[in-house]
Nucleic acid binder design. Structure first.
Lengths: 114, 114
DNA sequence: TTTATATTTACACTCATGCATATATGGAGC
DNA sequence: GCTCCATATATGCATGAGTGTAAATATAAA
């Protein structure tokens, strides 16, 4: 149960796990709910959830005989922080749009607050 | 040679490949330069570079008997865009700091421009 | 105890990795 | 042109890791 960035990518490598993550974006779900959205047996989903739990992507809350799973932000932040190191690769070529974009976003944010 | 987000995570799952990517952050490198930074044989590096090439992470430019590899932005953008879908998971709990932070960054940016 | 929900384990299978070796490619020297 | 050397890729092999399924086991409620 390490929790390093390394395991984060290892965990995300499996498409079924990414599907599970996407399914949980809607909010807390019990195992069977997740199973219905995938084409894999329940035992497989349980194992994937276990891996996601170990990697910190999800948390679990027992509710009677059910187990409710939901997303946790930390590993996503780790990915975000990793990719940030490489953002310079494409930000340069967007520079000319940068200022206009920034102004637009700032205006939007101001509007939302009003 | 697909190029979907799926392969992106699959490609990033291997720690040696992430090392290679990191090594290329310094700029264009020939294969031997990369080999020296890792503890793996040249043939292995070549195969990893091939995989990175297929996934779009790197591009190759022949220079005599050397092959110069460098990073390409697209797959990183794909990761960035994927993680953006989950940003709401942690942005909420940072809201109270958000305004102060934004002001600070804005001030910094202004300062840099001056 | 019976039922619903979920996890664990054993198994077969596939796939990826690293190494070693062989093969390709390009330049230098003759 | 030809050979020699440096650089790099491709292939065959052994090994290890991960996946899905099915059966067995846990857990909680009725």
């Amino acid at each position: 149960m390490r929790m390093a960035t390394a395991d984060v990518f290892q965990t995300l490598a499996d498409p079924t796990r990414r599907q599970i993550i996407e399914a949980l974006l809607g909010g807390e779900q019990q195992v069977n709910d997740v199973v219905e959205k995938l084409s894999i047996h329940q035992s497989g989903v349980s194992r994937h959830l276990r891996i996601l739990l170990d990697a910190g992507f999800v948390q679990m809350r027992p509710d009677g005989q059910r187990r409710l799973y939901s997303l946790r932000p930390e590993p996503f932040q780790a990915v975000d922080s990793w990719v940030a190191s490489y953002r310079k690769l494409w930000e340069a070529r967007l520079d000319r749009f940068g200022d206009a974009l920034e102004r637009k976003q700032r205006a939007k944010k101001q509007g939302a607050k009003a």
